[in-house]
Simulated scan of single mutants.
Amino acid sequence: MNETIQLKKRILALINQINKTREEKDLSSQSLELMEKLEKLRELELIEKMPGEYLQAYLLYKQAFYSNYQSKNLQILDKDAYLEKLSQEIALIEEAIQKSTAEPDNEKLLVLLGKRIEAKEIISIWNKDNAELILPDGTLVVNLKTGKVVPNRVKEFLEKYEIEQKEVKHE
């Protein structure tokens, strides 16, 4: 029972992490998979309250599911093994979430920038003296020659949320 509670807490924490990093309306496949795992744990908790033969039948059904309904692949599955299987599945989802929320590399940033320029979400201005990226409302976002953001909203953001700013040297 304790392991079931720990898995439920782990799933809920991952769902909260997804909701913080994405629009609430956007139920990603990862969120749906986690909800499915949570439902499986709730089923198991309910079945555990019933007589023992119900739990055995449920685990036999799960054995058939995991063996793809092929008797040659059928493995003995008890409650602890089933919880371990769920834990492994949750770990795979957790790994995918970590990868998707990681900071994009330079290549991804340039691709995103290109898409936003193409969609006219960012306007690029090039002349002999300057190269700038500007938001459609006319606010200067970044000077491409110096790398400076004007106004420096990044610094304000970092100070507001007390995040340590890293020094970056441009060569």
Rank of each mutant, 00 (worst) to 15 (best):
Lys9Glu: 07
Leu74Gly: 00
Ile122Asp: 03
Leu83Asn: 01
Lys85Arg: 02
Ile5Glu: 14
Met35His: 14
Ala131Leu: 08
Asn130Leu: 14
Val168Trp: 01
Glu43Tyr: 09
Glu94Leu: 00
Asn152Thr: 04
Glu171Tyr: 10
Lys25Gly: 12
Lys160Asp: 15
Lys99Ser: 10
Ile134Leu: 06
Met50Trp: 12
Glu171Trp: 08
Arg153His: 13
Gln63Ser: 12
Ser67Val: 02
Asn19Lys: 11
Glu43Phe: 07
Leu41Tyr: 04
Pro136Cys: 09
Leu133Pro: 05
Ile90Phe: 00
Leu112Ile: 13
Glu48Lys: 12
Asp78Lys: 03
Ile47Asn: 03
Glu43Asn: 11
Leu44Thr: 10
Met50Glu: 15
Ile5Ser: 10
Ser71Glu: 15
Leu41Gln: 04
Asp78Phe: 05
Asp80Pro: 01
Arg10Phe: 03
Leu140Glu: 15
Gln30Glu: 10
Lys148Phe: 08
Glu162Met: 10
Leu14Ile: 04
Glu159Trp: 03
Phe65Trp: 15
Ile163Thr: 08
Val111Thr: 06
Ala131Cys: 08
Ala64Gln: 11
Leu34Lys: 02
Phe65Lys: 10
Arg116His: 07
Leu41Trp: 05
Glu53Asp: 15
Lys37His: 11
Thr21Cys: 12
Gln165Leu: 09
Lys62Cys: 02
Gln165Asp: 06
Ser100Ile: 06
Ile76Cys: 00
Asn127Val: 12
Ile125Lys: 11
Ala131Arg: 04
Gly138Asp: 13
Glu159Arg: 02
Thr139Asp: 14
Asn106Ser: 13
Ile11Gly: 01
Gln30Trp: 04
Gly147Gln: 01
Lys40Asn: 12
Ala81Lys: 08
Glu36Trp: 15
Arg42Lys: 09
Tyr54His: 13
Thr4Leu: 11
Asn19Ser: 07
Tyr66Phe: 10
Met1Cys: 06
Ile5Ala: 12
Ser67Phe: 04
Leu86Ile: 10
His170Gln: 12
Gly147Trp: 01
Asn106His: 05
Leu14Tyr: 00
Leu74Phe: 10
Glu164Met: 06
Tyr66Asp: 02
Asp105His: 05
Lys160Glu: 15
Leu32Lys: 13
Glu107Gln: 07
Lys49Gly: 08
Leu86Asp: 02
Val111Trp: 03
Gln30Pro: 02
Lys148Thr: 09
Ile97Met: 03
Leu112Arg: 07
Gly114Leu: 01
Asn143His: 09
Asp26Tyr: 08
Ser71Asp: 13
Glu43Cys: 05
Arg22Val: 09
Leu113Arg: 05
Asn130Phe: 07
Gly52Cys: 11
Val142Trp: 00
Tyr54Arg: 07
Leu158Phe: 03
Leu41Lys: 02
Glu118Ser: 08
Lys40Asp: 14
